[in-house]
Design a protein around this nucleic acid. Structure first.
Lengths: 253, 253
DNA sequence: GCCGACTACTTGTCATGACGTGTTGACAAC
DNA sequence: GTTGTCAACACGTCATGACAAGTAGTCGGC
């Protein structure tokens, strides 16, 4: 099984062999891999070598290991979508917010918890909101859950001048959410921009989102602009990459 | 330094301490971490424990290790921003394609290599292109380089019926690229859709894109539709997440 | 002065051995 | 039939030891 003279490290050969068996379907999704002890016998290597091989696969997001039970092939994740259309004014009128609209469409039970705080704008926030650094911003820090499971983190920031005296500074923003309150105060949304990236989660994020090893997070920074182009709100969202796919569409010209 | 009675594994405590020193700036970007031998002395743990701690940080994309030299704090990568406006017809008329437009804007020397092949549509391709499984598709497999470095992979698929007798089946599609050829044959692009996700790279992708450990890839599937809504082309792009950020903007309603 | 060999230091790989802790199922006690 | 105990087995953690291989600086020979 293992070619000792090939120059390829043994643990990589074991990892490659297991990977091939997984993608080929020999180990089907959800199936349990042979125990480390069995793999030691199968490949004729030591246990640390087997574990290093499994570490590689876990880093690729192919398997998860469960203490006392075994190592399992990761089943493909169910995919939710965030479509651009869910931010339409029509949708906002019907719902309290975009996340609840997704919930209605996907059939899970949504819940969110919100913490409000006020801070002074850092460089990044100042840039997106076109304000000076240090200006006071209202921060809405939200945790979104589906059937009790945390599935999304969102941190929304607005210049405090726009939120003073509105329900945006309350835990419950009321029907239509933040954007509806902005429009009520005479600041209609003219356009949105989203900036999308991906990275590995911080340990805190991995814990909060219950991420398996080898699962990146998608970061979305959405900026809402008034009709005249003034930035009104920036929203930093953190999504588990194994549970989300983002969709955008636009006319060709 | 290490609390043996806390229940927290030693390697995690070492990882947490090093992580804190990195994010706080005590180890600045590009700086060399103390050698494994030094860390063994500092924390009073064995070398495998130190290595396991470094493995954690590498998996988070915080550090890279270089054989024979040391372990280094990953400097932040310069981010290439891709905006949706790059697909405007105007831009297509001026350039040969979107990637070359980016190159002109950013000042690097672009080069691409293309391989053309024909295959029968699998389930996913058939779904996106609204054709039956098994129907012949033209596949343009492209590798994009900036200053010689591979920075992007793109696999474009079109129903062969649309490409027969056009330059789309040639290595050089001519001015304006694939979309210009489609329009010439009477199939104007009506709209685009992009589906964005992220995952860890396969070993092949990691090699080709020269990805450090702990760097995910962003996957973008762009579908181009004719004015009547018929799918014309799907394009699977793979981007290193540490070098790219995608931007989308759209009017509020 | 230049260049090669040598050496010290670095990370990479692998084996062996030990103990801890969570899971499961068999089996006995109730 | 239910429940509690316990052994077997799984993965998690950690130490010790060894050798391989890449890097960079030193030093001697030329």
């Amino acid at each position: 099984m293992i070619d000792r003279k090939s120059g390829v490290p043994a643990f990589r050969q074991v990892a490659a062999d297991l990977r091939e068996k997984i993608v080929s379907g020999e180990f089907s999704p959800g199936a349990k891999l042979p125990s480390e002890h069995d793999l030691v016998d199968t490949y004729g290597v030591s246990r640390p070598t087997v574990r290093e091989a499994v570490d590689v696969l876990r880093g690729e997001g192919l398997v998860t290991s469960e203490h006392g039970r075994g190592v399992f092939v990761r089943p493909p994740a169910s995919i939710q979508r965030i479509a651009r259309s869910r931010l339409s004014r029509e949708a906002r009128d019907r719902n309290r917010g975009a996340f609840l609209a997704d919930a209605a469409a996907s059939g899970f039970t949504p819940s969110t918890s919100v913490k409000i705080r006020f801070e002074s704008a850092d460089t990044r926030a100042a840039g997106h909101l076109a304000i000076d650094e240090g200006v006071e911003v209202t921060v809405r820090d939200r945790v979104m859950r589906a059937d009790g499971l945390v599935v999304q983190l969102a941190v929304s920031r607005l210049p405090r001048d726009l939120t003073r005296g509105t329900a945006i500074e309350d835990v419950d923003t009321g029907p239509g959410g933040t954007y509806a309150r902005l429009e009520e105060s005479g600041r209609a949304i003219g356009s949105f921009a989203e900036h999308v990236g991906a990275r590995m989660p911080t340990p805190a994020e991995a814990t909060q989102l219950q991420l398996a090893d080898g699962v990146p997070v998608i970061t979305v920074t959405r900026v809402a602009y008034a009709v005249d182009g003034t930035p009104l709100e920036m929203n930093d969202m953190t999504l588990p990459a194994d549970r989300y796919e983002l969709s955008y569409e636009w006319p060709a010209d």
